[in-house]
Structures are given as C-alpha cells and as structure tokens.
C-alpha cells in the first residue's frame, strides 16, 4: 500500500470504529465535569451570564427587541463556540492523545473524531439553553429545528475539516492554537453574532459579513432555529463552497503530514 492509499484506508477504518471514538468523546465530557458539583449545568449557567450581561448592553445599544435579540445572541454564540473549538482546541487533538497513538494500533484519525464528538456534545448542551430561552419567550417551533438539520450537517462536516487541518498542523507547529486563538478573537467581533446583519446593511458595510464564510455556516443553522424558515439558497451554496475548500486543504495537509505525525509527537 502506498502512503496515500494508506491514509484513505486508515480514515475509512477510523470511521468504522465509531464505537471507540464516541466512547472516548463522551468520556472527555464526563471527565471535564467530573469534579464539579453541577457539571454540564455550568455551560448553561455561563451562557446565561453572558446573555444577561452582553445581551442587555448590546441589545439596548443596537436598539434590538430583547425577545428576538437574546435568542439570536445565544444561538450564534453557541455555534461560534463549536467553530472555535474545531479550530483552536483541535490543534492539540493529536498531542493530547500521544499516549494512545504511541501505544495502540488503531488509526490516529479516531482521535480527530473523538474531538468532534466532544465538541458536538458541548454544542448540544448549549443548544439546550436556546430551547429554554425559546420556551421562555414562547416562540419555540419544532419545524424550525428540523429545518436547521441540513445546515447542522454542513456545519459539522466543516468542523471536522477544521479539526483535520488544525490537528495536523498543530502537531508540527505548536504555536498554532495560540495564534489562531488571537486571530479568532478578532473574527468574533466582526462576525454577526453580537449584532444582526441588518445593522451592517444599514451602515453600508455589508461586505463585513458577505466575505465571511463563518457567517454562512452560522446562518444556515441559526436562522431556521430562530425564524422557523429556510435561509436563502445562496447561503447554503456559500457554506458548501467553504466546506469544499476546507476539505481540499484538509486532505492536502493530511497527505503531507500523516506519516510524520507520530514522529512529531
């Protein structure tokens, strides 16, 4: 087998080992909250603090009706957290699994899927906060959540692509998570999470979101959940285009570094 086909064979085998990586991913969540008293409730509580503070100030500042703005803010923030993990935290996905990679024979891609599982569970807990808020504002609809599923699928595929890139590159360049963390802090403030796109449009600076691929990824999940309707097709198209691009880069990087990862750990 050439190294290249070996990579694909490994990736395929890793997917088949779903029992292993889902278990590891769930264990990661359990481990994170093991020694805390209220456990995953902290995620909800922290979101509550954030929305209570930032939501109030920004809502008033941008003259938004709270009933719409708070769910908007919290949904965007939860999805953002997921994307952030897939780029920053994922930079250490191989590094933290070193003890396993050097000792067991399974393809190392299972540790990327493990990361995806644990980030996804985190997001799911955050989305519970959205549901709670929607119930509180009495505008919850199961139809909206169902319409969010195609967007969610694209979001997760994109996140896995991020994880592949970040984990491989992050193993070689340990500075990566720090650098990305800083950059993404800036991106957070220019991505429509704390403010709706209407404000950008009104000020004539809509290029801020138009050329931001993360906006489309967030929008195709957030909008159906909140507005109970599908976003325009072009938003899906832009998100899909971005996913494609991410995966082209991801495969190129994986092919280059796959054989070297174990030696770089």
């Amino acid at each position: 087998m050439t190294p290249r086909t070996q990579l694909y064979a490994d990736a395929l085998m890793a997917l088949k080992l779903w029992r292993v990586w889902t278990f590891l991913g769930v264990q990661d969540i359990k481990a994170r909250f093991r020694r805390s008293f209220i456990g995953p409730l902290w995620i909800l509580l922290n979101l509550g603090f954030f929305v209570g503070g930032a939501g109030f100030v920004y809502g008033v500042m941008f003259g938004q009706p709270m009933g719409e703005f708070l769910p908007f803010l919290i949904t965007g923030f939860v999805i953002w957290g997921f994307l952030l993990s897939s780029l920053v935290e994922a930079g250490t996905a191989f590094v933290v699994s070193e003890g396993y990679i050097k000792q067991f024979s399974y393809p190392k891609q299972i540790y990327l899927l493990r990361a995806l599982v644990s980030y996804s569970i985190n997001m799911a807990i955050g989305l519970v906060a959205v549901i709670i808020m929607q119930v509180a504002f009495r505008n919850i609809g199961i139809d909206g959540w169902l319409m969010a599923l195609p967007g969610m699928a694209l979001l997760i595929i994109a996140a896995l692509g991020h994880i592949v890139i970040s984990a491989y590159v992050g193993t070689k360049f340990r500075d990566l998570p720090f650098a990305l963390g800083g950059i993404l802090q800036v991106v957070f403030f220019v991505t429509p999470i704390m403010f709706p796109i209407d404000i950008l449009r009104a000020k004539g600076i809509d290029f801020v979101y138009r050329y931001n691929p993360l906006y489309y990824l967030i929008d195709i999940v957030r909008r159906p959940i909140l507005e109970r309707g599908l976003p325009p097709v072009e938003n899906y198209a832009m998100a899909a285009l971005y996913v494609l691009l991410v995966w082209v880069v991801a495969v190129a990087i994986a092919r280059r570094l796959d054989n070297r990862v174990v030696f770089l750990l």
Binding site: R19, V20, F23, K30, A31, E98, G99, K102, Q103, F104
Partner: peptide, 26 residues
C-alpha cells in the same frame, strides 16, 4: 501491542473507565 504500561491513561477518570477505554483501544 504491549509496549508501556505507564502512559495512555485518562487521569481524571476512574480505574473502571480506564479499563473500558483501554479495552476498546485494544
């Protein structure tokens, strides 16, 4: 493989959970 017995543990997990993880990986 039986290479090292000193690494590859989840430090915050119980012994039982570590048995499960190791078993799965083997």
């Amino acid at each position: 493989p039986m290479f090292e017995f000193a690494t590859g543990f989840e430090m915050n997990q119980s012994g039982r959970d570590n048995i499960r993880i190791r078993g799965l990986l083997l």
